[in-house]
Design a protein around this nucleic acid. Structure first.
Lengths: 147, 147
DNA sequence: CTCGATGCAAAGTGTTTGCAGTACG
DNA sequence: CGTACTGCAAACACTTTGCATCGAG
């Protein structure tokens, strides 16, 4: 789902394509994991008068149309991701980095066995990235085995 | 990780085991996906004077010790889940039901290949459950193919 | 032109914190 | 008995809403 497609869908839904929306849609389709404040910050560079309300209203609209999904990657507030087709993330507990990982194909069998219909998959692996693994190996012990 | 184990760990960390914490720990270890308000509501049945602050403080404590994980199952606010070892959820877009599904084993290879260390996995499949699939089959068309 | 979209400020949520009193260890 | 924990209320951060105005269709 790219910017143009989203715009077409909005239009098809009878929504108006305003300057603000054009800017917001491009930013949201270009960037995978932004929160409202980050979208606002980027948008203000192009549409200087744009308000935070409009960011929220646009994001809410996209959410209602099923084009965007809320996610909380452990940062305590919402991030927005374009559509819910597939999201495979590895989140590093050491540095907080979020890395995209390739999809895993084992889900469809499960759905068939259970009579579910799977629309999207969201996988979050949590752990330590290569760099933080090394850092931890040399560093002090962690509190518990599980941390 | 059960209630007793969590209590032991708290104690080992030099934390005090108060009446409030006993109640909260039991509720949190017994229930997989509660939010702060729900924990509070349940806890008030046993500890009538317990405050919402204490719920938040306890949950925060558990989070800092790595015993509980925040998650946003698309409801717009935080739910708390005991530890981050493994969480496999199927979320129904029709009725909002959250179903536990069995773990998938394909992650470890990935980690080895990339030099990651995986501590926990959180998988959210999104779609329609058996009941809602049938309902949809008879019902009206949805807005877009993707919804 | 008309009605949906916007900016602004004010109101709502959910969460955190300061402080004085309480009770665990 | 000291100090970590608690309840309460006030502060805070993020999100939503009411209203007058603007502008896409």
């Amino acid at each position: 789902m790219n910017c143009t497609e989203v715009t077409h869908l909005l239009h098809a839904e009878g929504k108006r394509i305003t300057g603000e929306r054009r800017v917001l849609l491009r930013i949201i389709t270009d960037n995978p994991h932004l929160d409202a404040a980050e979208i606002y910050q980027l948008a203000r560079k192009e549409a200087t008068k744009l308000s935070l309300s409009t960011v929220y209203r646009t994001v809410k609209l996209l959410k209602e149309l099923g084009l965007v999904q809320l996610s909380d990657l452990g940062k305590g507030h919402h991030h927005y991701e374009l559509d819910l087709k597939e999201h495979y993330h590895f989140i590093c507990l050491g540095c907080g980095k979020v890395v995209e990982i390739p999809p895993i194909s084992a889900f469809q069998e499960l759905a068939e066995k259970r009579g579910f219909e799977i629309i999207g998959a969201k996988v979050q692996l949590v752990g330590y990235c290569t760099k933080c693994c090394k850092k931890r190996a040399r560093g002090t012990m962690v509190r518990f085995a599980m941390l």
